[in-house]
């Protein structure tokens, strides 16, 4: 059952990920955004299979909720009609494909050769309580710093969107 779920979610994630970057039917950024939502949902499913329940919930809430709504708002604000009539660049397509294929080959070879040390049966872990314990004890300083980062990001965004750029 778990194996079946893994293959289902993995196939969904990879196919939708492909449709985000190279949808053969539509060049519309809205279609890309929608397939990105599906990819993120499939990844949340994989997180559940890995017993990272809290992260699966956060993934849905933050990515599929907040981030994608932001993307859709910006797509709505910008007029992107011209995207659909631009053609693919042959050189860029071939060059990018070859480069990415080489990088994929390199990483796969590294994956085959490295000792991953995953012999033992994985324990059930990743409960929200254990995660919170670790977050608020050992990783308290990074947690506070991330809060400051969010504040800085917020101020920066307000400044960028308030000011009419001369």
């Amino acid at each position: 059952m778990e194996t079946l779920c893994f293959y289902l979610f993995a196939a969904l994630a990879v196919v939708c990920g492909f449709l985000v970057v190279a949808n053969p039917f539509s060049r519309n950024p809205v279609a890309s955004a929608m397939f990105l939502v599906l990819t993120i949902a499939a990844l949340a499913g994989l997180f559940v299979l890995l017993h990272a329940f809290f992260l699966a919930a956060v993934q849905i809430l933050v990515y599929a909720g907040a981030v994608m709504v932001l993307f859709l708002f910006v797509i709505m604000l910008l007029d992107l009609k011209e995207e659909e009539r631009r053609s693919w660049r042959k050189f860029g397509l071939v060059g990018g494909g070859v480069a990415v294929a080489l990088i994929a080959l390199l990483m796969y070879a590294a994956l085959r050769q490295s000792p991953l040390g995953a012999a033992g049966e994985p324990r059930v872990e990743g409960s929200t309580a254990a995660l919170g314990e670790l977050l608020f004890r050992q990783y308290l300083l990074p947690f506070e710093l991330v809060g400051v980062l969010l504040l800085v990001g917020m101020v920066g965004v307000i400044w960028l969107s308030k000011r009419a750029v001369p």
């Binding site: 993995a10 994630a13 990879v14 990920g17 492909f18 985000v20 970057v21 190279a22 950024p29 890309s32 955004a33 990105l36 990819t39 994989l46 993307f71 910006v74 797509i75 910008l78 992107l80 995207e83 631009r86 693919w88 660049r89 860029g92 397509l93 060059g95 990018g96 494909g97 480069a99 990415v100 990088i103 994929a104 990483m107 796969y108 994956l111």
Partner: peptide
């Protein structure tokens, strides 16, 4: 392997697509 495939798809998108929003996605 799934992670590798998704990463390569994203990299391909950044390299090939010319729309800023799609590159960001």
């Amino acid at each position: 392997v799934v992670s590798l495939l998704l990463f390569c798809l994203g990299l391909f998108g950044v390299l090939v697509r010319r729309n800023l929003l799609v590159m960001f996605m």
